[in-house]
Nucleic acid binder design. Structure first.
Lengths: 202, 202
DNA sequence: TCTTAACTTGAATGATCGCTCAACAACAGG
DNA sequence: CCTGTTGTTGAGCGATCATTCAAGTTAAGA
């Protein structure tokens, strides 16, 4: 051993995630990263290997954080209550990170769609992982008797995830009033609960 | 007058739209455009002014085409029938253009979000225009007695649009089976109709 | 047929892209 | 206090970026 690194990996990933989230993969230059991470190119390459690898690491960082946030907000409480809390947090921009921004995974999936297969593959994997998380939440609610016992977990999870992704995309629109945001979140939740087989909330 | 242009504006916009749709704004280089449009840089700049202006023109071209497609598929028939046709066309990739691609307007909104204000502003305007189209379809259905007379048109239109955008985003996922696609479209439609106040379809 | 305005061409521009690496700096073990 | 190893630095690499413009080409009107 001989010299300790100046940089914390967690802090670097936080900052890189924020940059990529705000400007996209192609829209974020190494110069932006050098400034945002306060690192010189050599240190960035020593720590992460390439811009693409740094992006993939930041994407994983994001996916982990998002799953933790959802678990915190929705875990161990009735499904409808947890969902309402989450949808309203999204609509109000109360969610801990990325206020008013669409999901970074979705953003990346769209940006990389037909040109960056490696990124598409990872984004797809993270989406499928998040879908599993929703599936487990739904099946737990089903076991608790909150929703019918014969639900199709994966199918409903996919539907729920699509609703959330759509909501977050539309919430990115600059010209949308706070009232409209909340109404949209309410409608989304109502639609989902209706399909699940539960007429209203609470 | 002295010399006629070799190029058709409609054909150029078709090709530019396809390129931007497939590779994004930043991901499409002038070299890509030169090849795709079969035009030399001077001709592109003479016809469109700049890469950004060409993109904005292509985006408008897309928005117009999309609205025409929706009007064709949903006009002059019961709302639930038209919606079912549209959702299924999306799920099956039967829609005339951009099979398996998310909405170009949404893609552009996300890509440009915090870095290209001009593009964001135009994308927002096209989204709001499309929303108005949905609002009129809903109000017409309401006048025909298909859905309750006291609906909140703009609110429901926003909800419908969010569902469609979310659906199209998720349909972009490569690892999604045809069966899952159709099920998702069904659930989306069922959720929307439930919120509108109509229990089933047909 | 000649003129001339409009259109096309493609080499060249300066800027910026992601990335490399030789030189330098820091610090634990001896 | 040296020595050896690892981390940091930043000038500079070749490639590519969007864009320009002088020169060449086309065809309608005289």
């Amino acid at each position: 051993m001989s010299r300790r690194s100046r940089y914390s990996r967690a802090e670097s990933l936080d900052r890189a995630m924020d940059l990529f989230w705000s400007r996209g993969y192609l829209g974020t230059s190494m110069k932006d990263l050098e400034e945002g991470l306060d690192m010189r190119p050599g240190s960035i390459y020593a720590a992460f290997g390439s811009k693409e690898q740094l992006f993939l690491d930041a994407l994983e960082w994001y996916a982990t954080g998002m799953q933790e946030e959802i678990a915190t907000l929705m875990g161990d409480r009735p499904l409808a209550e947890g969902l309402a809390a989450y949808f309203q947090a999204l609509a109000k921009g109360t969610a801990s990170i990325g206020v008013g921004r669409a999901c970074l995974i979705v953003r990346s999936l769209l940006e990389a769609a037909e040109t960056q297969p490696v990124i598409v593959q990872r984004a797809e994997a993270f989406l499928s992982q998040a879908e599993s998380g929703f599936k487990e939440l739904l099946e737990a609610a089903s076991a608790r008797g909150e929703i019918p016992p014969d639900i199709d977990g994966p199918r409903l999870a996919r539907y729920l995830q699509s609703q959330i992704m759509g909501l977050r995309v539309i919430l990115q629109r600059p010209g949308l009033s706070p009232v409209a945001r909340l109404a949209l979140a309410d409608d989304m939740l109502a639609g989902f609960l209706a399909v699940v087989g539960k007429p209203g909330d609470t």
